[in-house]
């Protein structure tokens, strides 16, 4: 898909059902809660203990930080950005905002895919909080691409 076309070609805005946008909002909110919880955990525990749920293997691995920034915090920021854009769209009804939101979702999806593969193939452990985020970012991505495909002129 051509980025310029995606950004400039009008969506048939009135035909994008409101429930899709509300779903995006709710799912992004869930993702935000999940990622923020992990971020808080990260900063509260200097030494995260190993618990029977097995999350510590993932959360203490070298992949849990990118150049010193916890991945959970990046997730929080991602979902927060989506939320702000969606609220801004509700507020101003400027279509570009919705378009930007939807164009951001492949970023979250690809990051989730990468971390899913890492958990499965490299770390050999899954953390349910990370899986929740993988689900929410995939839902955001699928709904956005669906809207682009269906409601483009």
């Amino acid at each position: 898909m051509n980025l310029k076309i995606l950004l400039t070609k009008p969506l048939q805005q009135e035909s994008i059902p409101k429930w899709i946008i509300i779903t995006l909002l709710i799912v992004a909110l869930l993702g935000f809660i999940d990622a923020t919880y992990l971020t808080i955990e990260h900063f509260q525990n200097n030494i995260p203990p190993c618990t029977t749920d097995g999350c510590e293997k993932v959360l203490t691995s070298s992949y849990s930080e990118v150049i010193g920034i916890p991945v959970a915090l990046l997730g929080s920021i991602y979902y927060f950005t989506i939320l702000v854009l969606l609220i801004a769209y509700f507020d101003s009804k400027k279509e570009i905002l919705l378009r930007l939101t939807m164009l951001l979702t492949p970023l979250g999806f690809l990051a989730s895919l990468y971390f899913f593969i890492l958990q499965a193939a490299v770390i050999n452990a899954f953390c349910q909080y990370c899986l929740v985020s993988a689900v929410t970012s995939t839902v955001l991505f699928v709904f956005s691409m669906y809207s682009f495909a269906k409601y483009r002129e």
Binding site: F32, T36, Y37
Partner: peptide
């Protein structure tokens, strides 16, 4: 507009506060 943005700020604030409070309490 005040309602939309105010509501958003309040909800995000409540979520963060709630998560921190829950974490402290469990500790």
């Amino acid at each position: 507009r005040i309602f939309t943005w105010g509501g958003f700020v309040v909800i995000v604030g409540l979520i963060i506060w709630g998560l921190i409070a829950a974490e402290m309490k469990s500790n």
